[in-house]
């Protein structure tokens, strides 16, 4: 446990009003157990109190410490510095969301897309008796797994270029509602994702599922939404349902 070493932290910096972002590099002494989040807090405490970052729980449940560590989306609180190869660690804010300052991004757009799909479900899940997943159905744990960290949005190549793309987290939330509606209007949710910037925009890069720290598997959720939509529009299904499964908006 005393095995200490010094690691260079190259930290992305940006302050509003500045023309361009820059990197500051700090030396931090770490033990095998030091996490990236702890190292950043150390930098803030000792080297530069103006360093902005978000965190809360320190144990992968609040989802606020998402960032890019050596180019890879991770939760800083559960990423040990020792598990990262090399003597230099580059820390950058999440991509595809507006930067407020340093490592803090504006999550407003994220929630604007996510909340209408998911919030009712999250809010009521603990209180509704019918929210209990039946025995043997593990998929019911999905949305509650999403910690809204935004890693999936940061890694997604489509979110990178299309600002209107609904994004993996919101689409996963939508699929969760379709799976277990709990009184929500499923056709309406399906109508919302059945758009050029909804589930059809995804290019199946599956990066979202690879980085999700909470096993939400948004990629699979998006594919399931597409499958559902296509099955609904099969001509023989349409007749059965007496018309289009969901009317175009």
């Amino acid at each position: 446990m005393t095995e200490q070493r010094t690691v260079q932290f190259r930290v992305f910096r940006y302050k509003q009003g500045r023309e361009r972002p820059w990197y500051d590099t700090f030396d931090v002494t770490v033990t095998p157990r030091t996490t990236v989040l702890e190292a950043l807090q150390f930098i803030r405490r000792v080297h530069d109190p103006s360093l902005m970052l978000r965190h809360s729980c320190h144990h992968a449940s609040c989802g606020t410490c998402g960032m890019r560590i050596n180019g890879q989306e991770r939760l800083a609180c559960i990423t040990r510095v020792h598990d990262i190869a090399g003597e230099r660690v580059t820390v950058e804010p999440l991509a595809n969301l507006p930067i407020i300052g340093d490592l803090v991004v504006d999550m407003k757009a994220f929630y604007a897309k996510f909340t209408p799909m998911a919030m009712p479900l999250i809010r009521h899940s603990e209180f509704l008796p019918e929210a209990e997943p039946p025995e043997g159905v593990d998929t019911y744990t999905r949305l509650e797994n999403c910690i809204e960290c935004g890693l999936c949005v940061s890694v997604c190549p489509v979110a990178a270029s299309d600002p209107l793309y609904l994004g993996p987290a919101a689409l996963a939330a939508a699929w969760r509602v379709v799976q277990e509606p709990r009184g929500q209007n499923v056709p309406e949710i399906l109508a919302q994702v059945d758009t050029a910037h909804g589930c059809w925009r995804c290019h199946i890069a599956m990066e979202c599922s690879a980085v999700c720290p909470s096993h939400v598997d948004p990629g699979a959720a998006i594919m399931a939404l597409r499958g559902t939509l296509i099955r609904q529009h099969l001509p023989w299904r349409r007749k059965q349902q007496g018309g289009d499964a969901h009317e175009p908006r």
Binding site: R68, Q72, E73, P157, H203, A205, E207
Partner: peptide
């Protein structure tokens, strides 16, 4: 940077 198989595939 930091891409996985399916990201490269895309």
């Amino acid at each position: 940077r930091g891409r996985h198989v399916s990201g490269w595939a895309f």
